[in-house]
């Protein structure tokens, strides 16, 4: 520049340092500011507060299924008949696509015993998220997904159709023999 008055040349690295420090501080600030903008889309406190529910199964008759909503998803609570239990246990597990025994589909109660009559599952087809039809539907007397024709047996295991996995189990525990806490 024409009017530049000659000043003693300073070590240029000092200038570089202040630029780098400023840039770094700015980058850190933007990064920290971005987190609230992202985190606000995560589940809010009231949503999280409803993430556990208790289900009383004493009113569910043998052969009946109730559907409760947990975290926005349908939960199938089925009171199985002895016939359904027997069918589920008669299968050769090694032939299954997603091998699981019937007991692996259950959770022990407060005394450490299984309650095989109660089957609790997330009612969402593992193929593409439709809700299967219950009441001994499909080729295996369990559930049948109308979207793409997946058949589940009386333990909710995938037997036929495109779904890759058995119906998922929600995290739950028995509070009493007929009262469970999901979540």
């Amino acid at each position: 520049m024409a009017e530049t008055v000659s000043t003693p040349v300073e070590n240029p690295s000092r200038r570089d340092f202040i630029y780098i420090a400023t840039g770094a501080a700015g980058a850190v600030g933007v990064g920290l500011y971005a987190w609230p903008l992202i985190d606000q889309m995560n589940p809010a406190a009231d949503t999280k507060a409803l993430s556990t529910i208790e289900v009383d199964m004493s009113g569910v008759e043998v052969g009946q299924q109730i559907v409760v909503k947990w975290q926005g998803k349908p939960i199938f609570v089925r009171h199985r008949t002895q016939k359904e239990i027997n069918e589920a246990r008669a299968v050769d597990v090694s032939t299954l696509r997603d091998p699981q025994t019937d007991e692996q589909r259950l959770v022990v109660n407060a005394e450490g015993k299984y309650e095989p009559q109660f089957l609790i599952m997330i009612g969402i087809c593992t193929h593409l998220g439709c809700v299967p039809i219950g009441n001994n539907s499909g080729d295996y007397d369990g559930w049948f997904c109308p979207c793409h024709g997946s058949h589940y047996d009386t333990a909710g295991r995938i037997r036929k159709g495109p779904a890759p996995k058995n119906l998922y189990l929600p995290p739950y525990q028995y509070l009493t023999d007929t009262l469970i806490k999901i979540g």
Binding site: M1, E3, T4, T7, I18, Y19, A21, A25, G29
Partner: peptide
Amino acid sequence: IYLFIFALLMYGSYKAVWRDVE
């Protein structure tokens, strides 16, 4: 506190950029 430090750094950068200019 962050903005205060950032403002100081920014002022330093500003002075450095304008150092040779009247």
